[in-house]
């Protein structure tokens, strides 16, 4: 059962943005009014805004800084973000910047979030070098919680190697997710895997959440510049 507020946070590069976009679209498809808030103040690249089009097509409202993906490296949270708390019946998804430095942005909303029904999800990826061991995840988790002044409520196992992700590789991440769960006392809420692999893993993995790769593989600066990463060999 989805909560009214869902926050995705964790180590940078663990796939929070793409997961947040997928989650927002899934909520919308379940019939809810959804807004997604980009509160990343750390990374000027690879932002929720990359998925602007797919969000619009799916009827998800996007609140993002006008400086995201621009030449201006300004760590700012758009003032419209407050709207996420004001509209009753609205479901909101927060895409938080990586690590504790990104989670700082969450602190200003902590009181409002804590008094509302919310889920704060720790996104983990076994194939990120600095969080490849469960104990390391715990260190990151504590730092993020301290900076955000909020507690995580669950885990999203988003273990992937980008285009080289395989079903076998993903199955190997299950014990890792369980270990993180044991160490933190948090439940694993979802095992996230690329949609084409999810089809093959159906029935083998519980709590499967198929993800589509949206903005992540693109290096978008302007309309003129087409998706850059597809041009790489």
């Amino acid at each position: 059962m989805a909560k009214q507020i869902t926050i995705f946070a964790g180590h940078y590069g663990s796939g929070k943005t793409n997961l947040a976009v997928n989650y927002a679209i899934a909520l919308r498809k379940a019939g809810h009014e959804v807004v997604i808030c980009d509160v990343d103040i750390v990374n000027p690249y690879f932002r929720t805004k990359d998925s602007e089009e797919v969000l619009r097509e799916n009827g998800v409202r996007l609140i993002a800084s006008p400086f995201a993906n621009s030449n201006l490296d300004i760590p700012s949270v758009p003032p419209e973000t407050s709207a996420a708390f004001d509209v009753s019946g609205m479901y909101s998804v927060f895409d938080v910047g990586g690590d504790d430095s990104g989670a700082v942005a969450l602190g200003q909303f902590a009181d409002r979030m804590n008094e509302r029904e919310h889920e704060m999800i720790l996104v983990i990826n076994r194939h990120r070098l600095l969080t490849s061991r469960p104990e390391e995840v715990v260190t990151y988790m504590r730092e993020i919680e301290a900076a955000a002044r909020m507690r995580f409520t669950g885990i999203a196992n988003n273990s992937n190697l980008g285009p080289q992700t395989t079903c076998e590789g993903f199955l190997q991440s299950l014990p890792y997710a369980d270990a993180v769960s044991r160490l933190t006392g948090l439940p694993v809420l979802m095992h996230c895997v690329r949609a084409d692999l999810a089809e093959q893993l159906a029935g083998k993995v519980p709590l499967l959440f198929p993800v589509h790769i949206y903005g992540k593989s693109e290096w978008k600066i302007s309309e003129e510049r087409k998706s850059f990463f597809h041009q790489l060999t």
Binding site: G13, N125, H127, R128, L129, L130, S132, N160, L161, G162, Q164
Partner: peptide
């Protein structure tokens, strides 16, 4: 060894 998903900047540091 094992494969990791890394940014170029991180790979520079680790290497």
């Amino acid at each position: 060894g094992e494969k990791f998903l890394m940014k170029g900047n991180e790979a520079l540091g680790e290497a």
